[in-house]
Every structure is written in C-alpha cells, then in structure tokens.
Design a protein around this nucleic acid. Structure first.
Lengths: 159, 159
DNA sequence: GGTGAAATTTAGTCGGC
DNA sequence: GCCGACTAAATTTCACC
C-alpha cells in the first residue's frame, strides 16, 4: 500500500510544510506550494490513501507532564521465538514507554521511556522488565537531551 | 514556561484524544471530553501557550519515502567541551537523521537515522560521522521493527 | 472558567477544462 | 490532473452567566 509511490516536487513541498506544522490550513498549504486549494486537498488525500502520510501526532513536553527523566533500556531476552510478541506488548503497556525498537546485535530491544524520576525509573526497570522471565539482561542509559531531525524526505536520486 | 502546569482531568482527556489523532476537530474533541466547543478551544490554546503541547507533527512512512533501512548510530566523541554543539548541528543537518540523543554512559550520542539502503548507510557512517575529527568511535545497529507507545500522560499520584 | 449564538474562515464537492 | 465556484462544516469571537 505504501511502496514505490511516485512523488513529484509538489508532493515533496507539501510533506515538507506539513512536517514543520501539521496544523497548516489547506489554504495556506496550497499558497505555499503554488497550487489551488482544491488541488491541494486532492494531493493530501492521495498522500494519506497511499500510506505516505500515516497520521498526525501531537508533540507534548514530557517534563511539563511530570515525566522529566527519559532513558533508554537495552534489553536481552531469552532466545526463543514466541517471547518477542508478549515482551513487546508488555513494554507498550507501560505508561512510561514512548517507543520500542527491535534491533540487530547483542541487545534485542531498546525501549525509550519517560519516567517521573529516578525512583519511578528504578521501579519500572526492576519490576516491569528485569523481573520478567523472558528478560535476560537490562542495561539502562539516561538521556541528557534530545533533538528532532528535519523533515523526512526521499533521497535525491540523480536519475 | 512549561513546568508545574496544573492539568485537570479534562486537560488529560484532551491530550489523550489529540495524541490518538491530532486532526480531531474541536467540535468532536469537545463532545468527547464533555465541554462546549468554545471552552475546548480555550483549553487547547492554553495547553499550547503553556508549552504542554509543543506542536503537531506529521507521521510519514519512511519506507514509502524510499528510506526503508533505519539504524541507530552510537557515537563516542573526544572528551572536550565545545565539540558537542558542532557535532549535534552536523548530525541534524544530515537528511537521514531522524533524532539525536545525548546520553550518559560510554557512548555519548545516539543518532537515529533512516537510510535508502545499506550503501547509503555505509556512506553516511563513514563519510559523515567516522570521518569527523571529534568522533572517536561509531557503532551501528539496525532496526528490525519499531512501535510507538500510547499517549504520554502524567504519572498518577495518589495525593 | 464556562456557555451559546453570531460572524468568519475553512474544508470538501462538483462540473468543466 | 488541475482549477474555480459553490455548499457544508468548521473555527473563532464575544456578550453574558
């Protein structure tokens, strides 16, 4: 549903604009990319239906919500198929979990969490991860600061 | 600007709704949380002005945009103040970069990237990171799959 | 701080090019 | 595929509680 979609320069301009601010009105968006509002509406609808645009997410301040301590948990699980799905499910059920990554390498998973403080993080790691039977090892790293990259756009091909 | 903001149950309901779908109309949102549309507009505006809501981001499919290979780069830099800012700036300037994290522990930074393929990733790591003088070591891990967590909400306090 | 109705802006539809 | 006029629905303002 989302592979090899043809994106012309106008589509790319739309994606760039909306990634800066997904609340941009269709009218402004059309003016910014140089097409009529009705055409712009079609373009965005197509980008949605083809799966290029997956949705719009609210960016919230974790500190303002009382979760100022963010960390990465690197986790090794027992090498059996069938433990992966329950593990991921359990990780996603924790309110502190922001994202889960299944990785190559020595550590099987990385879980990005936002905790209320050191004691909350300690409880999360020990009770919700280390204590689980399929979890072999948890290594915790704190996040000092983080930055978001610019708009995600296709690689520039010289074809 | 964003610390110790008082959030009542209505605010939390608004945040939960909008994190599910940031395009929810104000009318629907008001109905969902049980207040008048105009009141709801005030609430959301306050959440924005107080910095709880930082913005709305478009979620795009990296594969659909021709960047199907995502990876984490763990990077150690020379232990001198003054190298951090230029390094972060350079990392964020790469079109493949999705996010940059400054970490505790042996590795100073983790850079989340989305590449067009193995050769693009190789070029990125070698030419844009390993080649830089302040970079001491780069360790690359591929991402098999990733999941997003649920809505980020304040910890439930029993006060 | 919350509300309901009015005024304004926007999204979304449709026939024609 | 793109445009421009039209309809429907939304946002936003405001006087009042």
């Amino acid at each position: 549903m989302a592979s090899d979609v043809r994106l012309d320069p106008v589509d790319l301009a739309i994606l760039r604009e909306l990634q800066n601010d997904a609340r941009t009105t269709n009218k402004e968006l059309a003016a910014a990319v140089g097409i009529a509002p009705s055409t712009c509406l079609d373009r965005v609808a197509r980008l949605r239906s083809t799966g290029v645009i997956l949705g719009t997410a609210l960016r919230v301040d974790a500190s303002a919500l009382g979760r100022p301590l963010q960390a990465l948990l690197f986790i090794r699980v027992q090498p059996h198929r069938g433990v992966l799905e329950p593990f991921v499910k359990h990780a996603l059920e924790q309110p502190e979990t922001r994202a889960v990554f299944h990785l190559t390498g020595a550590d099987d998973f990385m879980v990005h969490v936002a905790a209320a403080g050191a004691s909350d993080l300690q409880r999360l790691v020990l009770d919700q991860f280390t204590a689980r039977p399929e979890v072999a090892l948890v290594h915790t790293t704190l996040i000092f600061q983080q930055w978001e990259g610019g708009p995600l756009l296709p690689p520039t091909t010289s074809s």
